[in-house]
């Protein structure tokens, strides 16, 4: 039963993707890994970072200003984090708000609520208003209405009987 241990099996490894087993094959020893790291790019990038930090902050801080004034555009792009924040602000935040407003005002409030919901209520009332003037208050209208209804019903009976009485 799954819930005997709630979320017991939530971290399992699919039989077809044995990633850890794969890793296991590459693992030799701690020392081997240490020596191997010297020839990988990340190691040298780390060294580069440490050196450039030392150069721009301690050795010659003025170089930083010179580079900044020479590569203004690059600096701008880097400073604004490649524009991801603004992308987030404009596209995701404002976009969501705009989308939300659109859905709310147009679809929810206008289409569903105004047209369908209140519209059907209005339709019922409108039909009521439409039928109401039949009630003129004049007796002869009422009598006429009754007689016409009678005629219709009699006609319907005649038609329904297929005129079989003629035969």
């Amino acid at each position: 039963m799954l819930f005997g241990g709630w979320l017991d099996n939530s971290i399992t490894i699919d039989a077809s993707h044995q990633a850890l087993a794969e890793l296991k094959g590459h693992f030799y020893s701690a020392f081997a890994l240490l020596t191997h790291s010297v020839v990988t790019p990340p190691f040298w990038m780390m060294v580069g970072g440490a050196v450039s930090a030392w150069v721009f902050c301690l050795y010659r801080p003025d170089w930083a200003d010179q580079i900044q004034s020479r590569f203004k555009r690059t600096n701008y792009v880097l400073n604004s984090l490649y524009g991801f924040d603004r992308l987030n602000d404009i596209v995701f935040v404002k976009g969501s708000v705009k989308l939300g407003n659109l859905l709310w005002k147009i679809s929810d409030m206008t289409l569903i609520d105004k047209v369908i919901v209140n519209g059907s209520a209005k339709l019922a009332r409108y039909l009521g208003v439409l039928i109401r003037p039949v009630q003129t208050g004049y007796v002869y209208h009422y009598a006429f209405f009754m007689i016409v209804s009678l005629m219709l019903v009699l006609g319907w009976v005649l038609i329904a009987s297929d005129f079989s009485f003629f035969s």
């Binding site: 009754m146 019903v153 009699l154 079989s164 009485f165």
Partner: peptide, 22 residues
């Protein structure tokens, strides 16, 4: 019942129904 009889009964019926409906 003859068809004519049925028809007239039907007609009478209609009038009765109208009286009741009124």
């Amino acid at each position: 019942l003859e068809p004519q009889e049925t028809l007239i009964l039907n007609f009478g019926l209609v009038f009765l129904v109208i009286g009741v409906a009124f």
